[in-house]
Simulated scan of single mutants.
Amino acid sequence: MIQSNIDNISEKQWTELSKCNTANFFQSKVALHFFESVGTEVFTFALEKDKEIVVFLSGIIQKEKGVKAGLTSRAIIYGGPIISENAEEKNVLEVLAYTVSYLKKKAIYVEMRNLNDYGDYKEVFKKAGFEYVPHLNFHLDCEDEAVMRKRMSSSKLRQVKKSLKQGAEIKEAQDQKEIEAYYAILENLYKTKVKTPLPNLDYFIRMWKDKVAKFFLVIYKEEVLGGIVCPVLDNKVIYEWFVCGKDGAYKNIYPSILATWAAMDYAVKNDIPRFDFMGAGKPDQDYGVREFKSKFGGEQVEHGRFLNVTQPLLYKVGKTAVKILKSI
C-alpha cells in the first residue's frame, strides 16, 4: 500500500532509506520539513513491503503568483526517488503511476531532476509515461585533498590562493545581516543572468536559522562578496544548491571561485566523500556554467531527468513564455 504521511515512517526506516544508492538530501525528512515550513506544497509517496520502505518519492509544487500560476505550475522531484535494492519493477511502476495520477490536475508537468544513476530503471519510467531528457552534472571526489587539488584547473587553484593571500576569508554565516547581504548578490544574479524564479529572502533566512544547509560566505574588508548554500546528506554528499559572487569588484579577489572552494574544503576537512554540483546543463547546448564547473576537477556524469507532461497544451505555452522571458 502507498502511504503519503511521512510521520508514519519510522526512524529505522528513514535510516535504511539513507543507505540506498539513490538516497539524496532532497528526499530526506529534513528537506521535506523545511519545504513545508516555508509554505511550499509538498507531496510524498512511500511503498512499504515487509516493513521496509522500498520506494520513496517526494517533491514540491512550484508556481508563480497571480494569473501566471496556471501556466507555471510544475511538480519538481529534486534528486529523484529513493529505490531500495529490494524493490521490484512493479513496486517502482506502482509509485510512479500513483504520482502521475495524483499530480495530473495539479501541475502542467512532473520533472525528476536526478542526482544519482537511474539507468537500470529507464524502461520502468518509460512505462509510466516519463521521457528521459539528457542532463549533465559533475561529481567531485573529496576523499583526498592532494588528489582533489591536482585534478583542479591550475588557473582556478591559483585564483583561490590569490584571493586568500589578498585577504579574502571564508566563513560560515553568523547573523541575519550576512544572509541578507548574500541574498542581495544572489538576487541580482538571478535577475540579470539566470532569469528563473528565486525563492524570497525569508526562505533563505529560515533555511539558515533551522540549519537545513551550510552557508559559506566570502568576506573581504568586512564585506560579503558572495557565498554558497550547501545541504549535506549524512556526511556522504555535500551539494551546491545556490552560489554567487561579486566577481570583478576587487583585484585578485575571485568570490565565485572561492565560494565553490569553500564547499570543497569543508568536504575534505569533514570526511564527506562527494561534492555534487547539482547540474551542468544539456549536453547539446553551450552552457557557460558547465565550463566554469568543469574547472574544479569533478567527473562529468549524465544522470538526466525524467519528464512527464500532464497537460501538453499548457506546457507548450508555458515553455514558450519562459524562453521569451529569458531572452529579455
Rank of each mutant, 00 (worst) to 15 (best):
A31Q: 15
Y239A: 00
N8F: 11
Y203I: 08
L47T: 01
V237C: 03
I9N: 09
K126H: 08
E48S: 13
K104V: 10
K214P: 02
D7H: 13
G167Q: 04
G70D: 09
T40L: 15
N24C: 11
L157E: 11
K236R: 12
N270L: 05
T260V: 15
A181P: 04
Q3A: 06
F26S: 05
N8P: 00
K104R: 15
F43E: 08
A75H: 08
A263E: 04
E180Q: 14
F275D: 03
G70T: 09
V160Y: 06
N24M: 08
G66A: 10
F242L: 06
V243N: 11
T72G: 10
L47V: 02
W261M: 00
V133G: 00
S153D: 12
Q62E: 15
I170K: 01
P312L: 03
L233I: 01
I253G: 02
S18I: 02
F26A: 04
V194T: 11
I179L: 04
I205R: 07
E180S: 12
F25E: 10
F292M: 03
K127E: 00
L140M: 10
K214D: 04
N308S: 10
G129D: 00
V133N: 00
F292V: 06
V243S: 12
M148G: 03
G66S: 11
V67Y: 15
W261A: 01
L217M: 06
G59W: 04
M264L: 13
S18N: 15
K165N: 09
P283Q: 04
D144W: 08
N116W: 01
P273F: 08
Y203T: 05
V218E: 00
Y78S: 14
V54C: 05
F292S: 05
Y98F: 14
A107G: 04
N188V: 09
L233W: 01
Y183H: 08
R113H: 09
P231H: 03
V147C: 05
K193S: 10
P283E: 06
G304T: 01
A46Y: 09
V110Y: 04
I2E: 01
G318W: 09
P255H: 05
A262Q: 08
G226F: 08
Q300P: 11
W241M: 13
A259S: 11
I257C: 05
A87P: 07
K12D: 14
G288S: 10
K65F: 14
E178N: 01
R149T: 07
K295D: 07
Y287G: 00
N252R: 12
I228E: 06
E64A: 12
S4M: 13
